[in-house]
Amino acid sequence: MAHTPYNGSSQRPAGLSEAARLELIETAKRYPIKRSAVLHGLRLVQREAGFVTEAGMRDVASLLEMTPHEVYDVATFYTLFHLRPKGEYLIQVCRTLPCALGGAESLLSHLEQRLGIREGQTTPDGKFTLVTVECLAACGKAPVMQVNDDYHEAVTTEQVDRLIEQWHRTPPVQDAGNASTRGKGRG
């Protein structure tokens, strides 16, 4: 059995980009321990690769002085991290009680019909993945779905149809919400 270091690899398969590495190193400086930046690191991996890749987790581990196992254990706890590739558009339908009262079930079945897939599946062209999620904190405008990073509130079936049309034609824009905050002091 080979006891190889976790971080000794010189030829790494696509992990974090140089820019993301720098960003992660900077982010880690906001905390007394590097490990605090692990969620951000995983978010960067997911932003770049579309899902949380093995190489990405190894990179996060070595940059934050963690074992890959520790990174993996964190990644599997939080539901926003996906360890497998997903469609270009990740449609997340909230189905917790307030949304369920507001028609989440019919929204879901409409989506299933429209996309020709069941909850949890991805369209064969890799365009859409349909999942259900728990409360998104937008219950005042049920039903709610989050597509990639964007909330769609009080959605009607007509709206959904229009959106799907539109998405079929265009690739998603890079999500804006992953910007991390930094004070001017450390830029």
């Binding site: 006891h3 987790m57 074992t67 196992h69 993996y72 599997t76 706890f77």
Partner: peptide, 24 residues
């Protein structure tokens, strides 16, 4: 050493290695 970790959450928790690799 931290070679094993809990993965997933709730009652889906299992003890495993990184990406379920053979234990090293």
């Amino acid at each position: 050493v931290k070679a094993i970790a809990a993965v997933n959450r709730g009652d889906r928790v299992e003890i495993s290695t990184f990406m379920d690799r053979e234990l090293d």
